[in-house]
Simulated assay, not measured.
Amino acid sequence: MKAIYVATMMAASLALSGQVMADEALAKAKNCLSCHAVDKKLVGPAFKDVAAKYKGDAGALDKLATKVKAGGKGAWGEIPMPPNNVTPEEAKKLTTWILAQK
């Protein structure tokens, strides 16, 4: 029984780490990391700071996915974020990953 539990947990862990890696790969592919980093401010805020700011906000995923796709300004300073060439699904995937940063 313990072996089944361990195997199940390992499979779930691999699936989650694969998902995290895929989302980080998408962030790299879409050039998000040209202006953002996970743990420090570059041109835009650190993703962990975005996650902290929107922690507990039930509407954050949709709100931020819209900003990822359409761009935005004013939330983090004077420098605007330009619109990004992502699908709505990619924007949600990226936003889900960003909001999971700690």
Rank of each mutant, 00 (worst) to 15 (best):
Met1Asn: 03
Met1Leu: 10
Tyr5Ile: 15
Val6Leu: 11
Val6Cys: 02
Val6Gln: 06
Thr8Val: 15
Met9Tyr: 13
Met10Ala: 15
Ala11His: 04
Ala12Ser: 10
Leu16Gly: 11
Ser17Ala: 08
Ser17Thr: 13
Ser17Asp: 05
Gly18Trp: 12
Gly18Pro: 12
Gly18Arg: 10
Gln19Cys: 14
Gln19Trp: 15
Val20Cys: 05
Met21Arg: 14
Met21Gly: 11
Met21Cys: 09
Met21Gln: 14
Ala22Asn: 00
Ala22Tyr: 02
Asp23Gly: 12
Asp23Ile: 07
Asp23Gln: 14
Leu26Asp: 02
Lys28Asp: 06
Ala29Trp: 00
Lys30Ala: 04
Lys30Ser: 13
Leu33Asp: 09
Ser34Phe: 14
Cys35Ser: 13
His36Phe: 14
His36Asn: 12
Ala37His: 08
Asp39Phe: 07
Asp39Met: 01
Asp39Ile: 07
Lys41Ile: 01
Lys41Ser: 00
Lys41Cys: 00
Leu42Lys: 11
Val43Thr: 15
Val43Arg: 11
Gly44Cys: 02
Gly44Phe: 11
Gly44Val: 00
Pro45Leu: 04
Pro45Gly: 02
Pro45Lys: 09
Ala46Gln: 08
Ala46Val: 11
Ala46Ser: 12
Ala46Ile: 11
Phe47His: 02
Phe47Leu: 07
Lys48Thr: 12
Lys48Arg: 11
Asp49Asn: 13
Asp49Pro: 10
Val50Asn: 04
Val50Gln: 05
Ala51Glu: 13
Ala52Asp: 01
Lys53Gly: 06
Tyr54Trp: 10
Lys55Val: 14
Asp57Tyr: 06
Ala58Arg: 03
Ala58Cys: 05
Gly59Pro: 00
Gly59Lys: 06
Ala60Trp: 12
Lys63Glu: 05
Leu64Glu: 04
Thr66Gln: 07
Lys67Val: 02
Lys67His: 07
Val68Phe: 04
Ala70Leu: 15
Ala70Phe: 10
Gly71His: 13
Gly71Thr: 12
Gly71Pro: 12
Gly72Val: 04
Gly72Pro: 03
Gly74Asn: 03
Gly74Met: 03
Trp76His: 02
Gly77Gln: 09
Gly77Ser: 11
Glu78Asn: 09
Glu78Ser: 10
Glu78Cys: 02
Pro80Val: 13
Pro80Ile: 06
Pro80Lys: 13
Pro82Thr: 00
Pro83Cys: 07
Pro83Phe: 07
Asn84Lys: 15
Asn84Arg: 07
Asn84Cys: 12
Asn84Gln: 15
Asn84Tyr: 08
Asn85Ser: 15
Val86Leu: 05
Val86Glu: 04
Thr87Phe: 01
Thr87Ser: 14
Pro88Ile: 02
Pro88Arg: 02
Glu89Ala: 10
Glu90Gln: 15
Glu90Val: 08
Glu90Pro: 07
Ala91Cys: 03
Ala91His: 03
Lys92Ile: 03
Lys92Asn: 14
Lys92Val: 04
Lys93Cys: 00
Thr95Lys: 03
Thr95Asn: 08
Thr96Glu: 14
Trp97His: 01
Ile98Cys: 01
Ala100Ser: 15
Gln101Met: 09
Gln101Pro: 02
Lys102Glu: 10
